[in-house]
Amino acid sequence: MTTADPTHRYGEFVERDLTQHPPALTPGYRTSVLRSPRNALLSPRNTLTERTGPMILPDELGAHDNDMILNFAKGGLPIGERIVMHGHVRDEFGNPVRGAFVEAWQANAGGRYRHKNDTYHLAPIDPNFGGCGRMVTDENGYYFFRTIKPGPYPWGNNANAWRPAHIHFSIIGDGWAQRLITQSYFEGDPLIEQCPIAATVPSRNQLRSLIAQADPANNTPFDSRTYRFDITLRGRRATFFENPRSTGAAR
């Protein structure tokens, strides 16, 4: 493991490697066609604006905020497969990201979202399931939450498109440049191979990094299964000399 000098804890972020992310225009995912910029992105030098970011403290959250089994229960438990999802948030150099704000949202066991715009009314709402949770990572960058495994979900991309079971994740790290939203899938789900959104990920290895792995050693016997999903955010580089007055070269 190579780390930046810890005395430079708040240096600039290493450039985002856009080849590791989906491009903006991915016609197989049809909504992206009219919602993707046609111009190239502009790459400015990192300033304080990008090196800082919002801080959310654990005591701002409620006791059950990371427990989707209990945080919307109205006199009963939600129906579905009880699971724990856990993992570490680290940067590209392996350093833990402490105090990261991790938010998750998902459909219920039948693939129905609790959202006023969800039209999949054939699958019912679960009165005891909300479908969102949140937590702040500890000193080791570790997070965990408990939930119901979400069901697959049909959508209008093409007439027979089904999302694999997935949980949406939003991460606010230690700087605005680390801001990330992604989705985690579940090991062994055959729908992953057919999904136009999963297919926007540019390589097999990167897609694999989105697939949560069964972690049977950490199951709670006679209670719940466990999945592991680790998250990697951008790293900060060391500052060897004072910053020159430079905002970038001509293109």
Partner: peptide, 9 residues
């Protein structure tokens, strides 16, 4: 250097 987790919509 491990790659950043890829983004999804």
């Amino acid at each position: 250097r491990r790659p950043e987790t890829p983004s999804q919509t």
